[in-house]
Nucleic acid binder design. Structure first.
Lengths: 206, 206
DNA sequence: GTCTATAATGAGATAGAC
DNA sequence: GTCTATCTCATTATAGAC
């Protein structure tokens, strides 16, 4: 069956509610052109309706962004709680966190991209909520690194820098998966874990 | 006084031309609010004049962005040529590239932030030029990694992923230096090189 | 070179017919 | 629920006095 110009196949198959279609199209276009560089008309066009028709499903352009960002930030937060409260060694928790980032990146690459920068365009209340979720996540992540150092598994580097470099890599993965989709998830996990844990040198100076 | 962008403290000290003041203020505000989220009035206010007065020094808002991005992309490109053409081992070249990123990040953190995302708002011609510089840089970077693998110094991981993870970390450093300014450059270089080259594990499985 | 006033444009959002 | 027509406002950019 034919589909209208510019509408991705999965968007017009009747599998998604209009609200979901708007969120998918919004994530895609916000990623490509930025939140402020994206018009409601272009989002509407992506799903085959006119701009003002969006208002039957959303209350503002900003609501699209805040739904995308807060939903995903909340999922990271929930999954972190789950991992935190397990009884594994900290090093195992770290590996599970790496897997988590890869899982959510593959599921939702556009939203991952937005989480890096577009949160600055959230309205005050949402922005505060988002930053709080992100900062708590970062703190939890760092605590696990500290625990792993205490357990003798990780080197004693400047802990903020260690967290920062790991999270930077993981949070940028959406750009890699967009370009090299042939990689499967398990292979990707193995490679990313090795790069983070073992670095890139072949012969370490021990 | 080349490459003095990004030193906000001295913005009203008469040390900079109006044009330079505009670039410094622009970088700061584009970083904070995004290009589209920044008004010319706010840039003008930052340096103590009215919005329309900017037009005595620039020809458009977009010119501020393109100057910032293309100047810095060109500097990365020039420095890469220098490093490429040296006779060192590839591993030494890689270490020099890490130092380069840290040097330019400390000199110009706001512009580094813009280079990640705001290039999407460049006009077509500038955008093409910018993407070309960036892609050539990325290719050169990867060639050095490949050479270093061939020379037996680096592990044989998926090369695109290796490049990607290293560059993601380095290109995100601006956010770290903004938060932890107490670190000096040499310490930072040592730590970053170790994290990338040796990873974070204390006891490697060799 | 800077100002005030204003033109020109673009885009979010609303009204009301169907 | 979707459409067309329109309102409203913010912002880039220009004109012209000083």
């Amino acid at each position: 069956m034919a589909y209208t110009l510019g509408i991705p196949m999965d968007i017009d198959k009747g599998l998604y509610s209009r609200k979901q279609q708007i969120l998918i199209a919004g994530a895609k276009l916000f990623h490509k052109n930025g939140f402020k560089g994206t018009t409601l008309q272009s989002i509407a066009q992506e799903i085959g309706i006119e701009g003002p028709s969006l208002y039957n499903h959303i209350k503002s352009k900003n609501e699209i962004l805040s739904t995308l960002l807060l939903t995903n930030a909340q999922e990271f937060s929930d999954r972190m709680q789950e991992i935190k409260s397990s009884s594994e060694k900290a090093l195992q928790k770290l590996e599970r966190l790496i897997s988590l980032h890869i899982e959510l990146t593959l599921k939702n690459p556009d939203a991952m991209a937005l989480m890096l920068n577009e949160w600055v365009h959230l309205e005050k209340a949402d922005r505060t909520k988002y930053v709080k979720l992100r900062d708590e996540y970062d703190n939890d992540f760092q605590s696990i690194l500290v625990n792993s150092i205490d357990e003798g598994d990780l080197v004693e580097t400047e802990i903020n820098l260690m967290r920062f470099m790991i999270l930077s890599s993981l949070r940028s993965l959406y750009a890699w998966t967009a370009k090299y989709h042939s990689f499967n998830r398990i292979e990707l996990e193995v490679s990313v874990k090795s790069l983070i844990l073992n670095g890139i040198l072949k012969n370490k100076n021990l």
